[in-house]
Amino acid sequence: MLEIRWHSRAGQGAVTGAKGLADVIAGIGKEVQAFATYGSAKRGATMAAFDRFDDSPILNHEKYMEPDYVLVIDPGLTFIADIFENEKPTTKYIITTHLTKDELIAKKPELKTKEVYIVDCIKISLDTLGKPIPNAPMLGAFIKISNILGIEEFKSAFKKVLGKKLPQQVIDANMFAIQRAYDEVK
């Protein structure tokens, strides 16, 4: 089973990202779960979203997981949330930041022994979408690091997910954000 935990603030699109990713993965025949936990129900409050993917039915419906990937889409949460909760030795971290990896590790030394990838999802979303909604860029970074699907296969499937709700101009901007993060994650 593949488990993913997203750390974000309400309004940054983590729930939409987790559900969209689950829709795409379900489309290739996997069993999926996507859900979220909230603190305060107001925009800007910290929250977490979760995905699980497996070839077999998923019987665990608890929020407890030992994530294979931790996606931090709000840079500040790297420092105030427990992003290491229930980690495995092999957990990979994809963190939104404008810092270099060395600068990030200097500010959060616990990351030194982890497999860490960085990408500036906030900047990418501002440049491509005109809003600080970093979920689409994080999906691009995740696809690159996880190699769960090829980028073109993912974008094609994700266009269909977005096409249910959004105008073509917004879909195109999301595809550009996904590709840019895929190309820029380090």
Rank of each mutant, 00 (worst) to 15 (best):
Phe50Cys: 12
Arg52Met: 12
Pro167Gln: 06
Glu110Pro: 00
Ala177Arg: 05
Gly44Val: 12
Glu87Phe: 01
Thr100Val: 00
Pro109Thr: 13
Asp51Phe: 08
Ala48Cys: 13
Asp127Glu: 04
Leu139Arg: 07
Val170His: 03
His7Pro: 04
Leu99Glu: 15
Pro89Asp: 11
Thr128Arg: 04
Asp102Asn: 11
Leu77Phe: 07
Ile143Trp: 11
Gly39Ala: 14
Ala22Glu: 13
Tyr64Trp: 12
Gly20Trp: 08
Ala181Lys: 00
His98Phe: 03
Lys155Val: 14
Leu149Lys: 09
Ala157Ile: 04
Ile151Arg: 00
Lys164Tyr: 12
Glu62Ala: 05
Ala45Glu: 06
Ile4Pro: 01
Ala26Tyr: 11
Lys114Arg: 08
Leu126Met: 14
Thr97His: 13
Thr100Glu: 00
Ser56Gly: 01
Ile73Asn: 02
Leu111Phe: 00
Thr46Met: 03
Tyr38Asp: 04
Pro109Ala: 14
Ile178Gln: 14
Lys144Val: 03
Ala36Lys: 11
Arg52Phe: 10
Val70Ala: 14
Asn147Glu: 15
Ser125Leu: 02
Lys155His: 01
Lys112Thr: 04
Ile80Tyr: 08
Gly150Asn: 06
Glu184Gln: 10
Glu152Trp: 14
Arg180Val: 11
Ala106Arg: 04
Ile25Lys: 12
Lys88Thr: 03
Asp82Met: 06
Val24Lys: 10
Lys92Leu: 05
Ser56Leu: 09
Ala157His: 04
Ile118Met: 02
Pro57Asp: 06
Met47Asn: 11
Met1Lys: 02
Phe79Cys: 03
Leu59Cys: 05
Lys131Ala: 06
Lys101Trp: 13
Ala173Pro: 08
Lys42Met: 12
Glu152Cys: 15
Lys63Val: 14
Ala157Ser: 09
Met47Ser: 11
Ile148Arg: 01
Asp183Gly: 11
Ala106Val: 00
Lys160Ser: 13
Asp120Ile: 03
Pro134Arg: 07
Pro75Phe: 11
Asn60Cys: 05
Trp6Thr: 03
Ala22Val: 10
Leu21Asn: 02
Lys88Cys: 03
Ser40His: 08
Glu31Ser: 07
Leu129Glu: 10
Asp54Cys: 07
Val119Tyr: 01
Glu115Phe: 01
Ser156Gln: 15
Ile178Asp: 15
Ala48Arg: 11
Ala48Tyr: 09
Pro89Cys: 03
Met175Asn: 01
Glu3Cys: 05
Ala45Gln: 08
Gly39Ser: 12
Trp6Lys: 02
Met138Pro: 05
Val116Met: 05
Gly163Ala: 15
Leu21Val: 13
Ile178Glu: 09
Ser125Asn: 00
Asp74Glu: 07
Glu184Val: 03
Gly150Ser: 05
Gln179Arg: 03
Ile94Glu: 13
Ile95Phe: 05
Arg5Ser: 00
Val72Tyr: 10
Asp51Gly: 08
Gln179Asn: 04
Lys165Asp: 01
Leu77Trp: 04
Lys164Gly: 07
Pro167Cys: 02
Lys108Pro: 06
Ser146Phe: 00
Asp54Arg: 00
Glu87Ser: 09
Phe53Trp: 09
Ile73Gly: 09
Leu126Arg: 04
Ile105Leu: 00
Phe50Gly: 08
Thr90Tyr: 03
Gly140Ser: 11
